[in-house]
């Protein structure tokens, strides 16, 4: 058992996990952010851990905030000079309609009660803001390998296929598109400016 979001694992393995972000991820996140219908100043890197996704996009945003539930991972983000907050993704310490972008990179499958997490993302986004989720696809080879590997570590990971996650996000009023690549898929949801 690892508690909410497999925290103990990440507290223990923060250093090992802190690898370089593949270019495919960087490009996918960047392309997703460009779909926002407003300028992106404030970005929340949810489950952002050591800040490696923030590091990849920091030139594009003025106010990134790394949010994670593992203090071990967040210490690395702090050492990189990023603003951070130890928080639960189901109850974020952020007001309604207060951020321009939320990114969740290789982290959504670790979060418990993912429907609450999606509700929170929608709540904190400003109209025209964007949600970008990078995930492994459990129906493809690499995604299956990662899913199986994480089971060996007794993680409580919950992976969604792109179609299923798209439905969950569009149910919350976002306009969704997904794109697959060799590492997984990227879901981009834009919150309507008419809300």
């Amino acid at each position: 058992m690892h508690g909410p979001g497999d925290i103990q694992f990440f507290t223990r393995f923060a250093r090992l996990y802190d690898l370089v972000m593949p270019d495919a991820d960087r490009t996918a996140i960047s392309t997703g952010l460009q779909k926002a219908e407003r300028p992106i100043d404030r970005l929340v890197d949810l489950g952002g851990g050591s800040g490696r996704a923030t590091l990849a996009v920091k030139s594009e945003v003025s106010e990134p905030l790394v949010v994670d539930i593992s203090i071990g991972m967040l210490s690395r983000a702090r050492d990189r000079g990023f603003a951070c907050a130890l928080s639960d993704a189901r109850r974020l310490p952020l007001p309604n309609a207060s951020v321009d972008a939320v990114i969740i990179v290789d982290a959504f499958h670790h979060m418990p009660e993912q429907s609450m997490v999606l509700d929170e993302c929608t709540r904190i986004l400003r109209p025209g803001g964007v949600l970008v989720i990078r995930e492994f696809d459990p129906s493809r080879a690499l995604g299956w390998l990662i899913k199986t590997g994480e089971r060996l570590f007794q993680m409580n990971s919950q992976f969604y296929k792109p179609d299923t996650l798209s439905q969950l996000v569009s149910d919350r009023g976002l306009t969704v598109s997904t794109r697959s690549d060799r590492l997984g898929y990227t879901l981009v949801g834009v919150l309507s400016t008419h809300n």
């Binding site: 508690g3 203090i71 210490s75 702090r78 907050a85 130890l86 928080s87 639960d88 310490p93």
Partner: peptide
């Protein structure tokens, strides 16, 4: 250590 702990109080011990 420079990091605000904004976990809801009922989760602090757990984490």
């Amino acid at each position: 250590d420079g990091i605000p702990n904004l976990l809801p109080p009922d989760m602090r011990d757990e984490v």
